[in-house]
Computed example of a mutant assay.
Amino acid sequence: MRSLGMIRLRHRPVPPAPAAPGDVLAEAEGVSVRLGDHQVLTDVGVRVRAGEVLALVGPNGAGKSTLLSVLAADLPPAAGAVRIHDREAAEWSAPELALRRAVLPQSTTLSFPFTVEEVVRMGRAPWTGARPEEDEAAVAEAMAATEVTAFAARPFSALSGGERARVALARVLAQRAPLLMLDEPTAALDLRHQELVLRLCRERARAGDAVVVVLHDLGLAAAYAHRVAVLRAGRVAADGPPEEIFTGSLLSEVYDQPVEVLPHPRTGAVLVLPVRER
């Protein structure tokens, strides 16, 4: 008779093999989502590639967070297909998914008085077979990257909104999944830490990961995303490099607000500015 330990070992989820640059790690094809009486997404298609930061942008209610949830396999679509690591999303078990994608929701609430370090360590839960030193290194690295090491022993509940957001991101980074899905990670952050988070996204992409990030700040999207999907009323209005698809006419129409797109006078980078009356 096999021991319980042997059975557990046999069914332990296996981490994915390293992806090559450009590999599609998540894909939505012809996806539609209806929540109650509201059609949130209609015939949406998007691909997420290794080595790339993909920003989802668009006005409130455009379907950005819903699309992120669908790509993360947290929300099943009413129609269409979703694949993660070249396999139908629904075919992955929860432990297998946790080794392949890490998700940062818009807000994180906890009912128990966990410390910051304990919250970050939660990101290591999928790695049941990891050595203790691997867990320690992943947690320490994630906390240092998000600048939360100094308050590792503080209760999560005692932190400011911006501090909580960075701790939640550290948990995602500690998970070390090759596909990161971040929903408005900069919303509660000051200028310095907004830039920090987007630099971290770029670093993860440079290391071979795929990053999907929902952003409201078009300037950040233009500066840090390799590719942008612009959503409008549940559909993809444009998809491509920001320097190609960010135009004044498109953004003015999508946001129902006059917008101008200009080159930075020193670097030539794309600047997105609302047109304001003086």
Rank of each mutant, 00 (worst) to 15 (best):
E141V: 08
T115S: 15
E52F: 06
A222M: 08
V172S: 08
R278C: 09
V230P: 03
Q39L: 15
A79H: 14
A55P: 06
L54I: 08
A94N: 14
E244G: 08
L251I: 03
P59M: 01
M143H: 04
V275D: 05
A90V: 12
L262R: 13
R171C: 11
P155C: 13
A177Q: 01
R8T: 06
H193M: 11
A237T: 04
A55F: 02
E134I: 08
L75Y: 03
R121G: 05
E243M: 10
W92D: 08
V228L: 03
A17T: 10
L9P: 12
T128G: 12
D256W: 01
L215D: 00
T149Y: 05
G58Y: 09
L251V: 00
T146W: 04
R276N: 10
E243N: 10
Q106H: 09
L75H: 12
R49D: 12
A19M: 13
E88D: 15
G161Q: 04
G63E: 01
R34D: 11
P77R: 03
L173S: 02
F114R: 07
D183S: 09
L71Y: 02
A233P: 00
T149A: 13
P21L: 03
I84W: 04
A168W: 04
C201W: 15
V211R: 12
G219R: 14
A223N: 10
L215K: 05
G240Y: 11
V116W: 01
C201P: 10
S107A: 14
A73S: 13
L35E: 11
A20P: 03
V197E: 11
R8I: 05
G162L: 14
E91D: 11
P15S: 02
T108M: 11
E117S: 10
A17F: 09
V82D: 00
T149G: 06
P265V: 07
E29K: 15
V275P: 01
A78C: 14
A62K: 06
D256M: 05
V82S: 02
E253L: 02
R34H: 12
V214M: 08
R47V: 09
T115M: 07
R2I: 13
L251Y: 02
A130L: 10
L110Y: 07
D239S: 08
P76W: 05
M6K: 15
R202S: 00
V70E: 02
L271N: 07
R166P: 03
P258M: 12
V272K: 06
R49M: 06
V139F: 07
S111W: 11
E27V: 09
G248T: 11
G234V: 09
A237V: 13
R124Y: 09
R121T: 12
D135N: 11
V120P: 00
P95H: 13
H193Q: 09
P265I: 14
R204P: 03
G161M: 05
V148Q: 09
V139N: 10
L68H: 01
Q175S: 08
R154W: 06
D23W: 06
A177P: 01
L189D: 01
L273R: 13
V103D: 08
T128W: 13
L169K: 04
T128Q: 12
W92S: 08
R154Q: 15
